[in-house]
Design a protein around this nucleic acid. Structure first.
Lengths: 374, 374
DNA sequence: TAGAGCCTGGACAACGTTGTCAGGCTCGGG
DNA sequence: CCCGAGCCTGACAACGTTGTCCAGGCTCTA
């Protein structure tokens, strides 16, 4: 189409060629002067084109397109026909500019490919759909800078609201946006230094209960492998672990805890060390789904039977030998709750920011009920 | 927070109250006349506001915001300061309107919560990000009408391109959009009645090889459980199954094949019937990840050992007893390939639409190598 | 010191849509 | 036959940004 040889780089500041090469700037004007009646070269027909073709006024087309009353059936028919003929579709960008609302919300999460976030994202989408809004999402890859970049890009698009699973821990950069009217809800992890709605799972209680479960089955040397401690959920789950251990009067050895990135390599090493050290653990509590999966693999290669409770449910957990006992959180409920709250903010029916905590559920399947094997 | 009590329904045609109630329309004019110097009530500051505060012209602010050359450091500093002070953020809607490109692409898929689509979506997002574009996605829920609705909504937003995993089989409705310049790539399944780029897995070959594998291990009575036959991938995989059977000189009994929705209930019933009928199968080939998971559950409750090969890899498949043999497709590669092709369309470096087929890979883990147990 | 040329800054129109408002038409009653 | 009421319709401005173009001030050279 028009200008088809230029490379795609829509957001780049358009620096005139002259400034880079010293040569004269080529006049790359998109010639829009010479039109074919009823349409334009390489461009989409607009309401103006439709109006011209139907022989009516611009506003009449607008009325038809938006189903507003006050148009004769005959006129409407003519307009509809012109719309069909030209393949007109309303430009929502222009509409947004005029109306102020974009009917879209943004979702920033860590990684769409993570099985925990898929259902969460879908739940948010469903709620958005019910309110006539589209969902724009972005993955922060657990990087605070990228999170901020994404969030601000979404604000520049003027999304009506934001659902954020934060990677960073300082969100003061969002304050002006919120003040300007962008509805905002944080999910899964709380926001840093700003006062917004937050929807989280009971990470502390869930982890504590999971570890208690292991203790109740006779374990005392219990390991904890989790995500980086700067991630709130990881810290909370660790706290739950510590509390359960403390409540049981167990002194936790440093070698029983391992926090860090959750790539299989590190987790594998951490698990091996816990299992083979001078004070080997008889059970492991894993801090999230990725860790759990890796630890299951490690344990599968071990002779000694080691008990396991994992945070987050995982598919097929019931079919392994033994079944994997987990502390499950409801990802879809997190997403749904957050999105509903978001739209209540947009409705104006919501008052002060609140923190909502959803319960977790211990699902026993066998791995958490193994007795200690010393 | 202007107009904060109105309910959120941004896309609804604004029908004057009088037309529904017979009462007079309340003049809901958003009074924008009385301003505070430097900002507006309940609205975001614009470049105009920034310009006023910095004491420069509108275009100068634009230049600073976009990093264009030709602004003195001193002027730039003043502008930057005003931007900070007012919390200005460029309105990309207006920018889009002016520039014609939105720097966003749309992805329509079946269900974001499906573990197959998460990685695909993420891969598309990464490519988009590398090109400075955001990703808007929507789930069609395997409903052709909803697919069309979503696609057209995305077109109305003027996304620069579309990656579509189609639910329907007639996409003529997209023709005007494509002609108008919307780059389009179909993934996972081909498009109906339009000529566009398509990126698919070798569903036929993969299924055929999977079934051959079972045949090679001595099976002759092999069942096939798949998705609805109107879904292209399902049909292709069935064709692969039929071909493999035919090539081996095996006559397929009707009772060995079951196609339909992939909810656990139906799949479970289908599996049970195949296993208990007058001519029970000794092996099952499953048509996608959801089916495979359900069938694994069914087989786990059966005494007789039944061989299984599934289409799509599934997490933890290696840890089950026996490990699950699968025909794996690379979801991320599908997404990446499609997105890259999309941006090559936008670059203008792409010519005729093409069909790209990515290979599948048979991963043997045990379940497919079980001998027939009659 | 004057003239040429460059650099910076700003006025203005345009992008496509929607809200406002006024004009023209028809119809019924006086 | 005239007038007011009510319904359709269309002209116009505005939304916030960017591209074009011009003016004024500066530097540099002859």
């Amino acid at each position: 189409m028009l200008d088809a040889t230029s490379s795609y780089d829509p957001m780049a500041p358009r620096i005139p060629v002259a400034d880079r090469t010293g040569h004269r700037t080529v006049p790359e004007t998109t010639r829009r002067t010479d039109r074919i009646p009823g349409t334009r070269y390489g461009n989409r027909p607009t309401m103006k084109d439709v109006a011209a073709r139907a022989g009516v006024g611009l506003k009449t087309v607008s009325r038809v397109v938006n189903g507003e009353p006050g148009v004769t059936p005959e006129t409407e028919r003519r307009v509809q026909e012109a719309i069909e003929a030209l393949g007109f579709r309303r430009n929502d960008s222009a509409r947004v500019l005029r109306k102020g609302r974009t009917a879209s919300i943004g979702l920033v999460l860590e990684d769409l490919a993570d099985p925990f976030y898929g259902p969460l994202s879908r739940a948010v989408e469903e709620v958005a759909r019910a309110h006539g809004a589209l969902l724009i999402n972005g993955s922060s890859a657990e990087d605070a800078d990228r999170e901020q970049e994404l969030v601000l890009a979404l604000c520049a698009r003027r999304v009506d609201g934001l659902v954020v699973i934060p990677a960073g821990d300082d969100h003061r950069y969002l304050a002006p946006e919120i003040k300007a009217g962008v509805a905002t809800v944080f999910v899964d992890r709380p926001a840093g230094h700003i006062d917004v709605d937050v929807v989280v799972s009971d990470n502390f209680g869930g982890a504590r209960d999971g570890v208690r479960h292991l203790i109740a089955h006779g374990h005392r040397r219990i390991g904890f492998i989790g995500d980086m401690p700067r991630i709130h959920t990881a810290a909370e789950r660790l706290r739950g672990y510590r509390t359960a251990m403390e409540d049981a009067g167990i002194t936790v050895a440093d070698s029983w805890m391992s926090l860090g990135v959750t790539d299989p390599e590190r987790v594998r090493r951490a698990a091996e060390e816990m299992l083979s050290g001078p004070d080997p653990v008889t059970a492991i509590f894993t801090g999230n789904n990725r860790v759990t999966v890796t630890v299951i693999r490690v344990l599968a290669g071990h002779a000694r039977r080691v008990a396991l409770v994992g945070f987050d449910d995982i598919e097929l957990a019931d079919l392994l030998q033994p079944g994997v006992t987990v502390v499950a959180q409801d990802a879809a409920a997190l997403g749904r709750t957050a999105a509903e709250r978001l739209f209540r903010q947009l409705d104006g029916t919501l008052l002060a920011p609140e923190r909502i905590e959803l319960p977790t559920r211990l699902i026993t399947r066998g791995s958490g009920e193994l007795p200690p094997a010393d």
